[in-house]
């Protein structure tokens, strides 16, 4: 306290050091330096597992792959071929993504442009809740709603709709976000010069929001292609590509789920590694595309603001 100090007391910063405060100072700076060295090492906790995982799956799967394995559409369990699962997964993803894009895109744009602010807040919150919902619950919903009540049975179409509902919130949120973040002057300029809502959305909003919406769709696909519970609970695995929507169909992740505990060298385990390899490749590719597109989008938006 300043009042307790006598008038003759010297005020010298070096007093601290003379009184033996060097220890405290050294400890403080030393601790800071040690933290600077040790904390970055924690990155290893994240990077080592992902590196080992990708290496392990690739090392197991790549030597067993051949052109024949990927293109043969015979019974996949008997011949250790991936043609049927790849094709069926593609059909699953194509249909589910289409449904999710239709629902999510229309919904997101409508929420950003038309819905009253309060209602939009509620719907956004429910989209967040849906995105945070455990996949097994969506699977249960698909089982009780589509398989049992709608009477579709454990079929391709039940899996498609369950997967689509799982993917919808991701598309919805990016579409909503993309249209909400279009700078106000642009909206006002469009409406001020007499554009109708549809004209604004198609001619002004869509070109600006397109890259971001695309990242949302890719993200939803990356999440959907690796999902297991929603599909397995609602679809029976079939040995062939389904010819009608009510037939059983096999999804890639099912191969991993059935094969992971099989003995080494068995067909099921080989199929599991191959399926895991293809899923990782697709997911990583989609993630990289999302990053690149998102980076370019950010630059573009910065250009818009200036």
């Amino acid at each position: 306290m300043a009042t307790n100090e006598g008038p003759n007391e010297r005020i010298d910063p070096a007093d601290d050091l003379r009184r033996g405060e060097t220890w405290g100072l050294r400890w403080r700076t030393g601790f800071d330096r040690w933290m600077g060295l040790l904390l970055p090492l924690l990155f290893a906790v994240a990077i080592l597992p992902i590196a080992d995982l990708v290496y392990f799956i690739s090392a197991k799967a790549v030597p067993t792959l051949s052109w024949h394995v990927v293109t043969s559409y015979s019974d996949y369990q008997a011949h250790d071929t991936l043609g049927v699962p790849l094709m069926t997964t593609f059909l699953f993803m194509a249909l589910a993504t289409s449904i999710a894009v239709v629902l999510g895109l229309f919904g997101g744009i409508a929420a950003a442009e038309f819905l009253p602010e309060r209602a939009a807040g509620w719907v956004r919150m429910s989209a967040n809740l849906l995105a945070g919902m455990p996949s097994v619950i969506v699977g249960y919903f698909g089982y009780f709603a589509f398989v049992l009540y709608f009477g579709w049975g454990l079929s391709f179409i039940a899996g498609v709709f369950t997967l689509a509902f799982f993917m919808t919130p991701y598309v919805y949120r990016t579409a909503d976000l993309a249209f909400s973040s279009i700078p106000r002057p642009i909206r006002e300029a469009a409406y001020g010069s007499g554009a109708k809502p549809v004209q604004y959305i198609l001619r002004v909003g869509a070109p600006i929001a397109f890259p971001q919406i695309l990242t949302g769709v890719f993200l939803a696909m990356a999440i959907g292609v690796g999902e297991t519970a929603p599909i397995i609970l609602t679809t029976q695995p079939g040995l062939l590509v389904p010819s009608t929507v009510f037939q059983p169909a096999v999804f890639m992740t099912y191969l991993i789920w059935t094969g992971f505990s099989q003995p080494a060298g068995s067909v099921a385990l080989t199929l599991a590694y191959q399926a895991a390899f293809f899923i990782i490749v697709v997911v990583l590719a989609l993630n990289i595309v999302v990053r690149v597109v998102a980076g370019r989008f950010r630059k573009r938006l910065q250009g818009l603001y200036q």
Partner: peptide
């Protein structure tokens, strides 16, 4: 520059599907 290189690896953890984590954890 180092943070910009390392951060995406952590984000990439979110992209790996659950079932792939499972088979890796089970075997390795």
């Amino acid at each position: 520059y180092l943070a910009r290189i390392l951060d995406p690896f952590v984000d990439l953890l979110a992209g790996i599907p659950s079932v792939v984590y499972g088979i890796w954890a089970f075997v390795v």
